[in-house]
Simulated scan of single mutants.
Amino acid sequence: MDVPGLLEAAGLLVPEGAATENSITVNDVWEYLAHDEWEVALGLLEELGDDRPLPAAFWQSLADAAERLRLERSAAWCRWRCSETHHGVVRAELTLRPAGSTFRKRPVPGPGVLRPMWDIGRRLPTGEASLHIGGLWVEYTPSLELGERAAVRIVPLTPSQWTDVRIGQEIAMHEDRAVAATAVVLEVRPPTVAVAGG
């Protein structure tokens, strides 16, 4: 499917009457598509997907369109959002430990590259923390500097292990035995698509 076809397919999955904070609707998308403004249409569709759960097919169509347009960050973002439909997402305010307090010497990359372990409150029979893998996307910035704080999105590798995570809970990020960062949970969204073996 070509770029306009992929964007049209995604647009058809947006609920009728859906609008962004700036009153952008899918009708605006159709207008830009009619004038071959594909990048603008893609951006508007991403905005329309920000405030409501949309199916994986929506995000996959956008990811495919972004790849064809060679918009790498946009493609990565749309693939990330597609994974959220399958695995759920925990949004949190993350604070990285300062330089010298952990092994990390560089900023955390923003676009979903890191897959750290998380202490989400579960315990092993021995009483030690049971750590669970969750991918990390730093919102609104390409990276997070040591000692700084940012809003993040965490996609659990195994959603069934994250069902007890609650808003307001503090969780800890690990890249080794030491705590690399702490995060306060702001929002928990379960998967919208069933995952086999989840």
Rank of each mutant, 00 (worst) to 15 (best):
residue 93 E to S: 06
residue 92 A to V: 07
residue 150 A to M: 09
residue 187 E to H: 05
residue 29 V to I: 08
residue 27 N to Q: 15
residue 90 V to F: 01
residue 48 L to W: 00
residue 185 V to E: 09
residue 192 T to G: 06
residue 9 A to I: 07
residue 88 G to E: 11
residue 120 I to Q: 02
residue 160 S to W: 03
residue 130 S to V: 07
residue 45 L to S: 07
residue 102 T to Y: 03
residue 158 T to N: 10
residue 58 F to I: 14
residue 165 V to E: 00
residue 110 G to Q: 04
residue 135 G to P: 11
residue 7 L to M: 05
residue 196 A to K: 10
residue 57 A to K: 06
residue 163 T to M: 08
residue 102 T to N: 09
residue 173 M to A: 03
residue 4 P to I: 03
residue 188 V to W: 06
residue 170 E to C: 01
residue 138 V to I: 15
residue 41 A to M: 08
residue 110 G to F: 04
residue 163 T to E: 13
residue 93 E to Q: 09
residue 179 V to K: 01
residue 125 P to A: 13
residue 61 S to Y: 10
residue 121 G to I: 10
residue 15 P to K: 00
residue 181 A to E: 07
residue 10 A to V: 01
residue 42 L to C: 08
residue 114 L to S: 10
residue 87 H to F: 11
residue 186 L to Q: 14
residue 17 G to P: 10
residue 145 E to A: 14
residue 104 R to D: 12
residue 42 L to I: 10
residue 52 R to N: 13
residue 107 P to F: 02
residue 150 A to P: 06
residue 49 G to W: 01
residue 88 G to C: 05
residue 64 D to G: 04
residue 109 P to H: 04
residue 136 L to I: 14
residue 122 R to N: 15
residue 119 D to Q: 02
residue 9 A to S: 15
residue 89 V to Q: 00
residue 65 A to D: 09
residue 121 G to Q: 14
residue 124 L to Y: 12
residue 188 V to R: 12
residue 163 T to K: 09
residue 15 P to F: 01
residue 127 G to V: 14
residue 52 R to H: 12
residue 136 L to Q: 09
residue 88 G to T: 08
residue 21 E to W: 05
residue 77 W to G: 02
residue 22 N to C: 05
residue 17 G to D: 07
residue 123 R to G: 12
residue 153 R to P: 12
residue 15 P to M: 02
residue 187 E to M: 03
residue 3 V to L: 05
residue 197 G to Y: 09
residue 9 A to T: 12
residue 148 E to V: 03
residue 110 G to T: 09
residue 140 Y to F: 14
residue 139 E to D: 15
residue 67 E to Q: 11
residue 32 Y to I: 11
residue 35 H to P: 12
residue 41 A to S: 15
residue 5 G to P: 06
residue 171 I to N: 00
residue 93 E to W: 03
residue 149 R to A: 14
residue 159 P to T: 06
residue 53 P to N: 10
residue 10 A to D: 01
residue 48 L to K: 01
residue 124 L to P: 13
residue 160 S to H: 07
residue 187 E to L: 05
residue 3 V to S: 04
residue 154 I to M: 02
residue 189 R to P: 09
residue 1 M to L: 13
residue 58 F to W: 12
residue 30 W to Y: 11
residue 105 K to C: 09
residue 141 T to P: 07
residue 73 R to A: 15
residue 40 V to N: 04
residue 69 L to T: 08
residue 41 A to D: 09
residue 1 M to W: 08
residue 79 R to M: 12
residue 56 A to T: 15
residue 113 V to Y: 03
residue 19 A to F: 02
residue 30 W to D: 14
residue 139 E to S: 13
residue 108 V to Y: 00
residue 12 L to K: 12
residue 72 E to G: 05
residue 134 G to I: 13
residue 73 R to M: 10
residue 102 T to I: 10
residue 139 E to Y: 12
residue 137 W to Y: 15
residue 15 P to Q: 04
residue 72 E to P: 00
residue 148 E to C: 05
residue 39 E to T: 15
residue 49 G to D: 07
residue 130 S to G: 13
residue 45 L to C: 11
residue 36 D to A: 01
residue 188 V to H: 07
residue 152 V to D: 07
residue 185 V to L: 04
residue 117 M to N: 13
residue 29 V to R: 00
residue 175 E to F: 00
residue 27 N to M: 10
residue 37 E to L: 03
residue 149 R to P: 09
residue 44 L to D: 13
residue 164 D to F: 02
residue 106 R to C: 06
residue 32 Y to W: 13
residue 128 E to V: 07
